[in-house]
Design a binder for these strands. Structure first.
Length: 874
RNA sequence: GCCGCGAUAGCUCAGUGGUAGAGCGCAUCCUUGGUAAGGCUGAGGUCCAGGGUUCGAAUCCCUGUCGUGGCACCA
């Protein structure tokens, strides 16, 4: 190489800019060649299973993926360095509607579309430099996977946890197909635009309600789950304790109701405030009443017309129809109540019938106000007078004393509930009961791209589960997805088979399983993806539970609840030992970005816009013609708002490490993170500054770290850094750990290699060696390059985590601020751990402090060890 | 309606009884052979508001305001 100029001193040739295009692929190949991340069952080491929610193969990696998998990779690399045997696998949640839609729109095959997408996304994920054991990769649409799923489905069938019953589905009358809830937009089919009908179909259900109690109670054991998620699950299951009892009819009961009309309540304490009994419009008694009375039938039809949207439900007027039937009050047969059909009562909660206590329930109050039924207060709020208390337009639901209530008078609410339940139970009129909001899990989908339900329908033997030997029930290769509806059902030959019992002609079930079934056990398949059985129990006993599960909050209820349920069901079947799949759960925030629009309102991509910062204000203009652009809200990256940034483009410009570093450093992982070009450019500058620091460091010397003052100070800072980064990673505060690394780099630059004493040189060797290992979880490629530069052994990906010397993390001399009456007035130096009397003496001898105290009387001196001194004076 | 979460520098966020911090941005200056850059120095904060506890509150408690998430005619 030739110097092109000769009039200035030459720069060292090693001062090359860091080039991720060279280093990053090179290290990924080195990791792969060394098989560095293969998970091994090693009884001699503690295990650690870290798992990110597996992706749907949409075809492109987005920033949310980058954040999710970078977070998990930090944990995996950290735990590996800490000596754990780490399992960190990856797979694909590959069945589902997008593939069918792509098939219909573009005339492609869903299988080919899906596997092509997987190939593309696998390449992108590998580019991220994740420390994944790729030998365990699978997709849920692999027959080797869903065949095993069919096997345990049959096991649950045998245990009575699978059943068929009529369920209500969304039916698109134009496309002639069942729609998932998310395909119904404002009450209309998302493709056809036709109003969606409710239709009753035979559906497959998993009996998750059998586990409702366990699923609620065991939430208490999940102490490494966010409180928020536990609360959401608890609300979703919605366990409520109350009373079920039957009202006896006055006069002859309607057919089928000889034992009375059963209701459920959580407020048995307010029974004496009852003024009517209400039943749901689709209650069997309502149906019976409607048979003889056209006006009742008309009312029921009116109720069913009501829109399903939330807004309509919220504003719907309370409507009722008096059936003319009369029931007796359970505690006083002489007192009677009318039975109304009411539009606000739900058939599928409790018994579909209630007693109305308008004084203490707002819905009941709205109802009786309209129809002129009595309002009888039975709970007296504290401080109110029984003689004058009245309920106005608002029901009273607070605490108080029961009155107007015979044997319950004078009790508080809880005591009255217990007494009322006891009386009902003694009279054999009913009993205390627990009900749940949770419904059984409808798992059937009338779709062709899913896991077939492994049963056949036989004219002789009915619904027959297949024997295990007949598995897998594989999808045919030649499904026609060219038109709406279930491609499996219309396949010409696939469904025709024979009955395993009578060997006569039979047809296969053409429903497939909800994709939430596919994702309810994949973590257990990862422990041994080659096993003949669904789950290799020995491997599961080693690896499970997942120690750290990471994913989006959007799965807080359904996916996590289903996975918990399936784990418990399989444990009861002896296939698993754990009863909870995920010991630790972390829900990361979304990646957001500013939005931009033209003056006309049309969305613009970030790449079309230039943001100009002028001192305190920001404005934006269109790159192509300089037109003003409106800067909108910061929102989740989405195609519709065009505020996405493609990871590939960022990798190309700044490298993978800079992209990883930015998404990890910007926000606490559980919060939303705002993507910005300035931010990733800042991370890129950090990568370069780190490399410069390592590149300018002379080869390590054998010299010992002599204890001159700058060397000792650097050593202390190094050991403090190790401690801080370690604690930050353990506490999921990656952004704080990275902030400490930024600060430390500034410190290194303040103590440069040039002109350093031998002691400082040695302290720098120690610091850089630690630094290379500390950045490895965040920027693994850069860390490898730095590790080589400091002469590290082997690859940093497999190097042990640096240890810190606790003694070195504490300073021997502390600077203590001194406050007078809570205001900072000076500072003093004292030995670490100095006792209060000693410190007090130093403080009072300090001339500056003494000046501040002139003319004041010292009332008290508060010394907080190693922290602060406060003098109270007047 | 019910249950949560949040509000700290221009922006994104740490800090959770004891000296108000980081990154980015901004300003000054230096370098212009690390150059689609690099470096020095600096300015910038009624810690949402009000009340309480305390020697001391951004931090704990209460009330409110604004923003935001989940559930919801669930008896």
């Amino acid at each position: 190489m030739v110097d092109r100029t000769s009039n200035s001193s030459p720069k060292p040739l090693t001062m090359a800019r860091y080039n991720p295009k060279d280093t990053e692929p090179r290290w990924r190949k080195a990791w792969a060649d060394a098989d560095a991340f293969r998970a091994v069952m090693d009884p001699g080491r503690p295990k650690y299973y870290v798992l990110e929610m597996f992706p749907y193969p949409s075809g492109r990696l987005h920033m949310g993926h980058v954040r999710n998998y970078a977070l998990g990779d930090v944990i995996a690399r950290f735990k590996r360095a800490r000596g754990f045997s780490v399992l960190h696998p990856m797979g694909w949640d590959a069945f589902g509607l997008p593939a069918e839609n792509a098939a219909m729109e573009r005339g492609v095959d869903p299988r080919g579309w899906t596997y092509d997408n997987i190939a593309r996304m696998r390449a992108e994920l590998k580019e991220l430099g994740l420390s994944i054991d790729w030998s365990r990769e699978f997709a849920t649409c692999d027959v080797e996977y869903y065949g095993k799923q069919q096997a345990w489905f049959l096991d649950l069938f045998a245990r009575g946890l699978v059943y068929r019953k009529e369920g209500v589905v969304n039916w698109d009358p134009v496309d002639q197909t069942v729609l998932a809830n998310e395909q119904v937009v404002d009450g209309r089919g998302w493709r056809s635009g036709a109003p969606v009908e409710k239709r009753r179909l035979n559906q497959w259900f998993l009996r998750i309600t059998d586990y409702a109690d366990q699923l609620t109670d065991d939430l208490q054991t999940l102490d490494r789950w966010p409180e928020k998620v536990r609360v959401m699950q608890e609300n979703w299951i919605g366990r409520s304790r109350g009373l079920k009892f039957a009202f006896a009819f006055a006069g002859s009961p309607p057919a089928g109701f000889e034992s009375g009309l059963e209701v459920y309540t959580t407020r048995p304490d307010t029974l004496f405030g009852a003024s009517f009994v209400g039943i749901a419009p689709d209650h069997p008694l309502a149906t019976q009443v409607a048979e003889g009375r056209p006006e009742a039938a008309a009312f029921i039809a009116l109720c069913k017309q009501g829109g399903a949207s939330q807004a309509e439900i919220d504003t719907a007027e309370k409507l009722g129809f008096d059936t003319g039937l009369i029931v007796q009050h359970p505690f006083d047969p002489d007192r009677t109540l009318p039975v109304w059909i009411a539009n606000f009562i739900l058939m599928d909660y409790g018994t579909g019938a209630i007693f109305g206590c308008p004084a203490h329930d707002q819905r009941d109050l709205d109802f009786v106000t309209k129809y002129g039924l009595p309002v009888i207060p039975v709970v007296l709020p504290p401080g109110e007078d029984a003689a004058t208390f009245q309920v106005g337009g608002e029901a009273y639901t607070g605490p108080g004393m029961i009155y107007h209530s015979d044997f319950l008078d004078g009790l508080d609410i809880e005591a009255a509930k217990a007494a009322a339940i006891a009386r009902i139970e003694a009279g054999k009129q009913g009993e205390g009961a627990t009900v749940y909001r949770l419904r059984d899990w409808g798992v059937a989908r009338q779709r062709g791209w899913g896991c077939p339900v492994p049963v056949v329908h036989c004219a002789t033997d009915g619904v027959v589960p297949l024997p295990k030997a007949a598995l897998p029930v594989a999808l045919p290769d030649d499904l026609d997805f060219g038109k709406p509806g279930n491609a499996l059902a219309r396949h010409p030959t696939w469904k025709h088979t024979t009955c395993p019992i009578c060997e006569g002609a039979a047809t296969r079930e053409t429903d497939t399983l909800d994709t939430f079934v596919d994702s309810s056990w994949y973590f257990a398949r990862f422990v041994d993806t080659q096993a003949d059985e669904a789950i290799n129990k020995a491997a599961a006993d080693y690896w499970l539970p997942v120690d750290q599960y990471i994913g989006g909050i959007e799965h807080a209820v359904l996916h996590l609840l289903y996975a918990r349920f399936v784990t418990k069901a399989l444990a009861d079947d002896g296939q698993l030992s754990v009863r909870e799949p995920f010991a630790g759960l972390f829900t990361q925030g979304m990646v957001t970005h500013e939005t931009y629009r033209r003056q006309s309102g049309e969305w613009l991509e970030p790449s079309q816009v230039e943001v100009i910062v002028e001192s305190k204000t920001r404005r934006a203009r269109l790159l192509e013609n300089g037109a003003d652009v409106v800067i909108g809200d910061v929102e989740k990256m989405s195609k519709s708002k065009k505020n996405t940034v493609a990871p590939e483009e960022i990798f190309t410009v700044y490298g993978v490490d800079a992209a990883r570093l930015f998404v990890l450093s910007d926000s606490p992982p559980e919060r939303d993170s705002q993507w910005s070009t300035a931010g990733v450019a800042g991370a890129w500058r950090f990568v370069n500054r780190v490399w410069e620091e390592f590149d300018s460091q002379p080869a390590p010397t054998a010299g010992d770290a002599a204890q001159d003052a700058p060397a000792l100070a650097l050593r202390r800072a190094t050991h403090r850094l190790i401690r801080q980064v370690t604690e930050a990673i353990e506490g999921f505060r990656f952004n704080s750990g990275i902030a400490r690394l930024y600060e430390f780099l500034n410190l290194l630059k303040a103590n440069p290699a040039a002109g350093a004493s031998p002691g400082l040189q040695a302290a720098r060797d120690e610091a850089l060696s630690a630094f290379a290992r500390l950045i490895a979880p965040f920027t693994p490629h850069l860390a490898e390059e730095c590790w080589v530069r400091v002469g590290g052994q082997g690859m940093v990906a497999l190097a042990p985590w640096p240890a810190f010397d606790a003694a070195l993390t504490e300073d021997a001399i502390r600077v203590l601020p001194v406050q007078v009456n809570g205001k900072r007035r000076g500072e003093i130096s004292a030995p670490a751990g100095a006792d209060p009397a000693e410190v007090e003496k130093i403080v009072l001898d300090d001339p500056e402090i003494a000046r501040r105290l002139e003319g004041l009387t010292i009332r008290k001196v508060i010394v907080v060890k190693d922290r602060i001194v406060n003098i109270v004076a007047a």
